[in-house]
Design a protein around this nucleic acid. Structure first.
Lengths: 232, 232
DNA sequence: ACAATAGTGTCTATTAGACATTATGTG
DNA sequence: CACATAATGTCTAATAGACACTATTGT
């Protein structure tokens, strides 16, 4: 095509373009991320972020490539996915100068164990190949920061959840306890949640909690707060 | 090299990788961005964002490429620069499937007119080629949002500035008036500014304002606020 | 009935905005 | 000295946190 003609003379010809996904979930008050064992060189056998080459023939854009990776390698259909940042340079991949467009994906705690891959607590990760350590650090910073003023953590919950459960999610992400009265006020302010009529969840010998869900039409995207959620 | 061998069989061989920079400044309470007239096809002659191919031989990463573009095409040495996002797909560039890593750069209002390029008010832009319109929209959203809780707007001011001047910058970015008492409290809270002893600036028949500068060691990076700046 | 957590009402503390007052330059 | 804007003090309003109290389940 046209591309190679112009590109080659500008030294843009041989350059690797990949996507990497930091897939996060939250189980038992622990943030976990999914690692896959690499099948090929470089770093064959090492545990790394799910990722792969962009396929210009089939992908409409890099996000598409990230979704394809999640679908084909993990069977995940439509998780929450947002672009994180791009990482580039001559040394991050031993195959040569590369650009990786990194994404963050959030899923509710999987019921069964995934066929492939391994969930690892984010604060007990092995050494990661490439610059995946840096990508993960950037992702955690983003997710923790965005938890302060948005409904992002909702995407770590299933369809239905109680407010105490959701508060625990926020607390885990922010690393600090939240005042429950204030938390309820904030969730109300978000305007994203509605109680499921009649549905409650009990998890012990005490009053059961009201179940909530995202309001219709607010499943995607994020609700935003005018002010941050304060700890305390 | 190694790259092309592995890359080609994964259909990652012919893919265009560029950087684009949304270079912003603020003059007379107007946010302006720099457009360059394209010298080559595609869209030769059109006004577009400064940008260019990534040069794997010389660039250490995409940020480096963006700095090179600013330096070579505009003579800008070390403006504030942050990665915005990547834009990709088969149709955004007629040469073929492409990834552009976009950056936002902020500079104080240039004293002389730049030799090349044209400053345009961001709310009166021409139709832009490629997906530059979308990139600009994303950049403006980012800059406006970050102005609410960080010292980002400082990078649109020169070395020395008064608090009323800085407040005007914030107000232009946020599009709303700010309470001056509250603004001073916030700037104090940022901890990034210090008064320049004895230096004042008068711009009329009235009390002159104290000049401030960034504290030593805080020229780079951003100060962050615990809460947003409210309008009013 | 009791234990335990859900959920609410309300008081106090903190933070933000309004407004008055003082400060300090120019014409 | 009048005027205009800078800068600050202080009162009021809005928002957040603490804490007590009521609600509702399982055992």
């Amino acid at each position: 095509m046209l591309a190679s003609v112009n590109a080659s003379k500008n030294s843009a010809a041989s350059l690797i373009c990949t996507v990497d996904v930091v897939l996060l979930t939250l189980r038992e008050r622990q943030l976990e991320l999914l690692l896959l064992q690499r099948e090929r060189e470089p770093f064959a056998g090492a545990w790394a972020l799910p990722g792969g080459y962009v396929h210009p023939q089939e992908d409409q854009d890099c996000e598409d490539a990230a979704r394809r990776v999640l679908q084909h390698k993990l069977g995940l259909a439509s998780p929450y996915l947002e672009q994180l940042a791009s990482f580039s340079g001559p040394a991050r991949d031993p195959r040569g100068w590369s650009v990786s467009v990194a994404y963050v994906a959030l899923v509710p705690p999987p019921s069964g164990p995934l066929p492939l891959g391994q969930w690892r607590a984010v604060d007990r990760l092995p050494q990661l190949p490439f610059d995946h350590g840096r990508i993960v650090a950037t992702a955690l910073e983003r997710v923790r920061n965005k938890s302060q003023y948005s409904s992002l953590p909702l995407h770590l919950c299933g369809e239905a959840f109680t407010l105490p459960e959701l508060q625990a999610v926020y607390e885990t992400l922010m690393g600090e306890p939240i005042n429950p009265v204030s938390f309820r006020r904030k969730m109300d302010e978000l305007g994203t949640l509605e109680p499921i009529p009649g549905a409650k969840r009990a998890d012990g010998p005490h009053r059961p909690a009201q179940l909530f869900r995202r309001k219709a039409g607010r499943e995607q995207g994020l609700g935003l707060l005018g002010r941050v959620i304060n700890s305390g």
